[in-house]
Simulated assay, not measured.
Amino acid sequence: MMRSKLLSLVPCATGPFRTMSTTTKLTTVEVNDKTGIATLTMNRPPVNGLNLDLLRDLRQSIAEIEGNKSRGLILTSSNPTIFSAGLDIMEMYKPDKERVRAFWTALQDAWLALYGSSVPTAAAINGHSPAGGCLLATSCEYRVMLPKFTIGLNETKLGIVAPMWFMSSFLSVLPRREAERALNQGRMFTTDEALQIGLVDEAAGTKEEALEKCAQFIGTFAKVNPIARALTKQQFRAAELEQLESERAQDLEKFLFFINQPAVQKGLGIYLESLKKKAKN
């Protein structure tokens, strides 16, 4: 896998980057012909809930960006107030046995692809980013967030235990003591709080500004050998990537066992009812 990713970094012999836009059902990829940076936009109304289809599209789009020899990847959302609301509860509530297996496998695939991407990655967080949304953001190398939104891994408040690789992404950004406390509390951080503790790197007033700041970060690697940079990044992240790769089957079985517990299903049901009440009000 690493060899194919590194080969994709060899300069293209066909000429300069071209402006292009490709759309799958739930994601859009746009490559800037001047910078060579790809913007990957999630587009699953109403809140970019990470269901099986969106996760598969994310994985496919990341592979496309690496295959197009883009110089970097910016992850963002078409929703003006939600980056991603996290894992789609409906994939886990009274789940179909085969679909829920495919769902968790697709989540593993998407995380491995983003966290281990050979190109520089940044997140333009233009909305709320709880749980799985925070996972995607912290899997990137740089984060720029708009004001008056929140971000965090709030799984414990939903009665869910975040797997170790969720925690690994969090720990790659925050000091261990800060990360442990936040995970145990299921804490959501405001933009200002996230900036203060280092959960995000910069704040921006608009989505356009956030995208520009992400592009500037990716631009800092312009004079760095891309293969050396990719190998350095992947060595830093090798332990977490290899752990999930080697424990994928066990991780899946743990998730299936946990999600099928009556108490967990009851908690998910209560949460869904609360969402319905909010929608009515």
Score class of each variant (00 low, 15 high):
P130T: 04
L183T: 12
T138F: 10
T206S: 15
T138I: 10
Q196T: 11
G159Y: 00
D96S: 09
T121V: 08
E180K: 15
V100F: 07
P130W: 07
S172R: 14
L153M: 14
E91H: 11
E91R: 08
K94G: 05
L112M: 10
L183M: 15
I160H: 03
K97R: 14
S168M: 05
V161Y: 10
A106I: 05
Q108L: 11
P175S: 09
A106K: 04
R101Q: 13
L195P: 01
C140A: 12
V161D: 12
A230T: 05
F103T: 03
L199C: 06
M167D: 03
N154R: 03
G186E: 11
K213N: 05
L114D: 06
R187L: 14
V119I: 15
R187A: 14
A204K: 07
A123Q: 02
S139A: 15
F149V: 04
L146H: 03
N126P: 01
A222G: 03
I125M: 06
I218W: 06
L112H: 02
G132N: 06
T232V: 04
A113K: 06
A179K: 07
A222S: 15
P147T: 05
A123Y: 03
F189P: 03
E141S: 13
L174W: 10
T232A: 15
E178H: 09
S117L: 01
K233P: 00
T191E: 08
S169D: 00
D192A: 15
G198K: 08
I151E: 05
G133S: 07
G205Y: 12
E212F: 14
T105S: 11
A228W: 00
F221G: 00
L158V: 03
A123D: 05
M167L: 12
M92P: 07
V119T: 02
Y115I: 02
A102I: 02
E141D: 15
G116F: 04
R99H: 08
A222M: 07
P95N: 07
R143H: 07
E141M: 13
T190Q: 06
T206L: 10
L171T: 04
A162Y: 04
D96F: 08
K148A: 13
E202K: 15
A222I: 13
L195G: 00
K157Q: 15
A210V: 07
A204Y: 09
P163A: 06
R187Y: 14
P163K: 09
G198Q: 08
V144M: 09
R143E: 02
V200A: 07
T150H: 11
A162W: 02
A123K: 05
R187F: 12
E180G: 03
Q196L: 08
A124P: 06
K213T: 11
M188S: 11
E141R: 12
S168T: 12
Q235C: 09
G116W: 03
T150M: 13
L158H: 06
T190H: 05
T206M: 09
T191C: 07
E141Q: 14
L107D: 01
M188G: 10
F217G: 00
S172W: 04
R187K: 15
L107M: 13
D201Y: 04
T232W: 11
G132D: 06
K213S: 04
H128V: 12
L112T: 09
M145F: 02
V119W: 01
R176P: 00
G133W: 01
A215R: 14
V224I: 14
D201E: 12
L231Q: 13
V200Q: 03
A113Y: 00
K157H: 11
P147C: 08
E180P: 02
